[in-house]
């Protein structure tokens, strides 16, 4: 009986690990598809309209400080995650 229990326990652990690996594979594949389609198409569209998402061009100006002007806001603003 003990042996059967031990076997079942090991089997369950093995199955769990197998499931995790499958989930990892499926997730990675899905993310790959999302990247190619979602990010890829947006990138093409952005290139066509000349949109830049990050300031990586080396353009010199007098100062690199940007205005922020962050002050206390009304309480409800702080319940937002953006």
């Amino acid at each position: 009986m003990n042996k059967i229990n031990a076997f079942l326990k090991e089997f369950k652990t093995g199955l769990g690990l197998f499931g995790q690996n499958i989930a990892l594979f499926v997730n990675s594949f899905l993310l790959f598809v999302v990247y190619l389609t979602g990010v890829g198409f947006t990138w093409i569209f952005a290139k066509l309209v000349g949109k830049c998402f990050l300031d990586i061009k080396h353009e010199k100006t007098n100062t690199y400080w940007d205005d922020l002007n962050l002050k206390t806001k009304p309480e409800k603003e702080y319940y937002r995650q953006f």
Binding site: W65, D66, D67, L68, N69, L70, K71
Partner: peptide
């Protein structure tokens, strides 16, 4: 970022943004 704190208030005036 930089700014000024006064009593219980903070005003952050300027920033430098990622990736810099």
């Amino acid at each position: 970022t930089y700014g000024l704190g006064n009593k219980s208030n903070i005003h952050l005036m300027k920033e430098i943004k990622f990736p810099h």
